[in-house]
Deep mutational scan, measured.
Amino acid sequence: DVEPGKFYKGVVTRIEKYGAFINLNEQVRGLLRPRDMISLRAENLNVGDEIIVQAIDVRPEKREIDFKYIP
């Protein structure tokens, strides 16, 4: 289970104008929005990159997770 405030290692699987999709594993995926990329620009991300993200909002009923990148 993903808990708000905890840090996780994930892999960038898709990049859109509104953010990057980060997979923690095959069943868990969330969104890293540009406003939550402190000191990281979306254009510096590539599909396949491994990054550490913090879960900031977890909505299990919608199967949605928002992440924040903190260097």
Rank of each mutant, 00 (worst) to 15 (best):
D1R: 14
D1E: 12
D1P: 12
D1V: 13
D1Y: 14
D1I: 14
V2D: 03
V2M: 05
V2H: 03
V2Q: 03
V2R: 02
V2Y: 08
E3V: 15
E3S: 11
E3R: 13
E3K: 14
E3W: 10
E3F: 12
P4T: 12
P4L: 14
P4K: 15
P4I: 15
P4R: 13
P4Y: 07
P4M: 12
P4N: 08
P4H: 07
P4E: 09
G5Y: 07
G5N: 05
G5R: 04
G5L: 07
K6C: 13
K6Y: 07
K6N: 07
K6A: 07
K6P: 02
K6T: 06
K6I: 07
K6W: 05
K6L: 08
F7M: 08
F7K: 04
F7Q: 03
F7S: 06
F7Y: 11
F7H: 04
F7E: 02
F7C: 13
Y8P: 00
Y8E: 00
Y8S: 00
Y8F: 03
Y8L: 01
Y8Q: 00
Y8W: 02
Y8V: 01
Y8K: 00
Y8M: 01
Y8R: 01
K9P: 02
K9E: 03
K9C: 15
K9F: 09
K9V: 11
K9I: 12
G10F: 06
G10K: 01
G10A: 11
G10Q: 00
G10S: 01
G10I: 05
G10R: 00
V11Q: 04
V11L: 08
V11P: 00
V11D: 00
V11F: 08
V12T: 01
V12Q: 00
V12D: 00
V12P: 00
V12Y: 00
V12M: 01
T13D: 03
T13N: 02
T13C: 09
T13V: 11
R14V: 06
R14S: 11
R14D: 02
R14T: 05
R14H: 07
I15M: 06
I15R: 02
I15N: 01
I15S: 01
I15K: 05
E16C: 13
E16S: 14
E16Q: 06
E16K: 08
E16D: 12
E16P: 01
K17R: 13
K17I: 12
K17E: 11
K17H: 12
K17C: 10
K17D: 09
Y18E: 09
Y18D: 06
Y18S: 05
Y18T: 05
Y18A: 06
G19M: 09
G19F: 10
G19A: 06
G19Y: 10
G19V: 08
G19L: 10
G19K: 07
A20Q: 01
A20E: 01
A20L: 12
A20S: 04
A20H: 03
A20V: 15
F21P: 00
F21M: 07
F21K: 01
F21C: 08
F21W: 15
F21N: 01
F21H: 05
F21Y: 14
I22A: 01
I22S: 00
I22C: 02
I22D: 00
I22E: 01
I22K: 00
I22P: 00
N23F: 10
N23T: 13
N23V: 11
N23A: 14
N23M: 14
N23P: 00
N23E: 13
N23W: 12
N23L: 11
L24E: 01
L24Q: 00
L24F: 05
L24D: 01
L24V: 10
L24H: 01
N25T: 11
N25I: 07
N25V: 07
N25P: 03
N25A: 08
N25D: 08
N25L: 07
E26V: 12
E26K: 14
E26G: 13
E26M: 12
E26R: 14
Q27P: 04
Q27H: 15
Q27A: 12
Q27D: 12
Q27R: 14
Q27V: 13
V28D: 05
V28M: 08
V28I: 13
V28N: 04
V28R: 03
R29Y: 11
R29L: 09
R29F: 11
R29P: 03
R29K: 09
R29G: 13
G30T: 03
G30F: 08
L31Y: 04
L31E: 02
L31T: 05
L31S: 02
L31D: 01
L32C: 07
L32M: 06
L32E: 02
L32D: 02
L32K: 02
L32R: 02
L32I: 08
L32W: 05
R33D: 03
R33E: 02
R33A: 06
R33V: 08
R33Y: 05
P34A: 14
P34C: 15
P34Q: 15
P34K: 15
P34S: 14
P34L: 15
R35F: 06
R35I: 09
R35P: 05
R35N: 08
R35S: 10
R35D: 08
R35K: 13
D36F: 10
D36V: 07
D36S: 06
D36Y: 11
D36W: 11
D36A: 06
D36L: 07
D36T: 04
M37K: 03
M37R: 03
M37D: 03
M37L: 08
M37Q: 05
M37T: 05
M37A: 06
M37H: 04
M37S: 05
I38P: 09
I38M: 10
I38V: 12
I38R: 11
I38Q: 12
I38C: 14
I38Y: 08
S39R: 13
S39F: 15
S39M: 14
S39L: 14
S39E: 12
S39P: 15
S39T: 11
L40S: 06
L40V: 08
L40I: 12
L40Y: 05
L40H: 06
R41P: 08
R41Q: 12
R41V: 11
R41F: 10
R41D: 09
A42V: 15
A42S: 11
A42P: 15
A42Q: 12
A42G: 10
A42I: 15
A42Y: 15
A42C: 13
E43Q: 11
E43I: 12
E43C: 14
E43N: 12
E43P: 08
N44P: 08
N44I: 09
N44D: 15
N44A: 13
N44V: 10
L45P: 00
L45W: 04
L45N: 00
L45H: 04
L45R: 02
L45V: 10
L45D: 00
N46D: 06
N46R: 15
N46K: 15
N46H: 15
N46E: 11
N46T: 13
V47W: 03
V47E: 04
V47R: 02
V47Y: 02
V47F: 02
V47Q: 02
V47K: 03
V47M: 04
G48Y: 02
G48C: 07
G48D: 02
G48N: 03
D49L: 08
D49P: 01
D49I: 06
D49G: 02
D49V: 05
D49Y: 06
E50N: 09
E50Y: 15
E50S: 13
E50R: 12
I51G: 00
I51S: 00
I51C: 02
I52F: 08
I52V: 13
I52R: 05
I52K: 03
I52M: 09
I52E: 04
I52G: 00
I52H: 05
V53A: 01
V53I: 07
V53R: 00
V53S: 00
V53P: 00
V53N: 00
V53Y: 01
V53G: 00
Q54W: 10
Q54D: 01
Q54M: 15
Q54R: 05
Q54T: 05
Q54N: 03
A55D: 01
A55C: 15
A55I: 15
A55N: 01
A55L: 08
A55V: 15
A55F: 07
A55M: 05
I56F: 08
I56M: 12
I56P: 01
I56A: 06
D57I: 11
D57M: 13
D57Y: 11
D57H: 15
D57S: 15
D57K: 15
D57N: 15
V58H: 05
V58Y: 09
V58E: 02
V58R: 04
V58G: 04
V58A: 04
V58C: 09
R59I: 04
R59T: 04
R59Q: 03
R59L: 04
R59V: 03
P60R: 09
P60K: 10
P60I: 10
P60S: 09
P60W: 13
E61T: 09
E61Y: 06
E61R: 08
E61N: 11
E61H: 11
E61V: 07
E61L: 09
E61I: 08
E61S: 11
E61K: 09
K62W: 08
K62L: 13
K62R: 12
K62P: 05
K62Y: 08
K62G: 06
K62I: 08
K62A: 10
R63C: 13
R63H: 12
R63G: 15
R63F: 11
E64C: 12
E64S: 07
E64L: 14
E64P: 03
E64M: 11
I65P: 04
I65Y: 09
I65M: 04
I65F: 07
I65L: 06
I65R: 03
I65W: 09
I65D: 04
I65V: 09
D66Y: 15
D66V: 13
D66T: 12
D66E: 09
D66P: 02
D66W: 14
F67N: 03
F67E: 03
F67Q: 04
F67A: 03
F67H: 03
F67P: 02
K68I: 11
K68Q: 09
K68E: 05
K68C: 11
K68R: 15
K68W: 06
K68N: 04
K68D: 03
Y69C: 07
Y69Q: 07
Y69F: 11
I70Y: 12
I70T: 09
I70H: 09
I70G: 05
I70M: 09
I70A: 09
P71I: 09
P71K: 12
P71V: 09
P71M: 12
P71T: 11
P71W: 10
P71D: 11
P71Y: 09
P71L: 09
